[in-house]
Amino acid sequence: MTNKMLFFDQVQKFTEAYLSRRRRIRRIKREKQKKKNPLLDWVEAFLWAAGVVLLINQYLLQAYQIPSGSMIDTLLIGDRIFVNKILYGPELLPGLGKLPSPIKPKRNDIIIFENPSYISRGPAFDIAQRIIYMLTLSFVDIDRDEAGEPKAHFLIKRAVGVAGDRFIMDKGEFRIRFAGEDRWVTEREYAVGRNFNYHISRLMEPSDYPALAAAGKLTAYNNLGLPSPEHLIAAATAARDWSYPDYLYHEQCRLELLRAAHPEDERYRLALARYIQGWYIPEGRIFPLGDNRDNSRDGRYFNPVRLSKVLGKGSVIYWPLRRIGLIR
Rank of each mutant, 00 (worst) to 15 (best):
L93H: 13
M204N: 00
D109F: 10
R285H: 06
E173A: 07
G164M: 01
I286V: 14
F125H: 14
S120D: 05
L99T: 04
P320G: 12
S207N: 05
F287W: 04
L232F: 11
E230P: 00
S228R: 11
Y209N: 02
Y118A: 13
A271W: 00
Y190T: 15
P105K: 01
R328H: 13
K106H: 09
F82C: 05
A239R: 01
Y59H: 13
A128I: 04
K4L: 14
I131N: 01
K104T: 07
A163F: 04
K309S: 15
I132Q: 08
H262L: 15
L232Q: 02
D73G: 15
Y64R: 06
K313S: 15
S201M: 07
D109V: 03
M1T: 02
L307P: 04
G95W: 02
P123R: 00
I110H: 03
I276S: 03
Y318P: 05
R80K: 14
K85I: 01
T136G: 07
S207Y: 06
D265I: 08
P94T: 12
R30L: 10
L54E: 01
R202L: 07
I103P: 10
I132M: 09
G97D: 14
I112A: 07
I156S: 06
A238I: 06
H199V: 15
P288W: 03
R24G: 13
T219E: 12
I327W: 04
L39S: 07
K313Q: 12
L60G: 06
L93T: 09
R240Y: 03
I168V: 15
P67R: 01
S207T: 09
Q58W: 04
N197R: 15
R297H: 13
N57M: 03
L226D: 08
Y318F: 11
F46C: 12
E173F: 06
F8E: 09
G325C: 02
V11E: 10
A50H: 09
R259L: 08
P263L: 05
A260R: 11
P304A: 05
Y244P: 07
S20R: 12
W319F: 14
A234H: 15
K309I: 09
Y88S: 01
V162A: 05
L6H: 07
F167H: 00
D9P: 03
I119K: 11
F46H: 14
Q12D: 08
I156A: 11
L218G: 02
S315H: 09
R23F: 14
G51Y: 09
G312P: 00
I156G: 07
R23K: 11
A239H: 12
A260M: 14
W48S: 15
K4N: 12
K171P: 03
E256Q: 13
E230W: 05
M134L: 06
P229L: 00
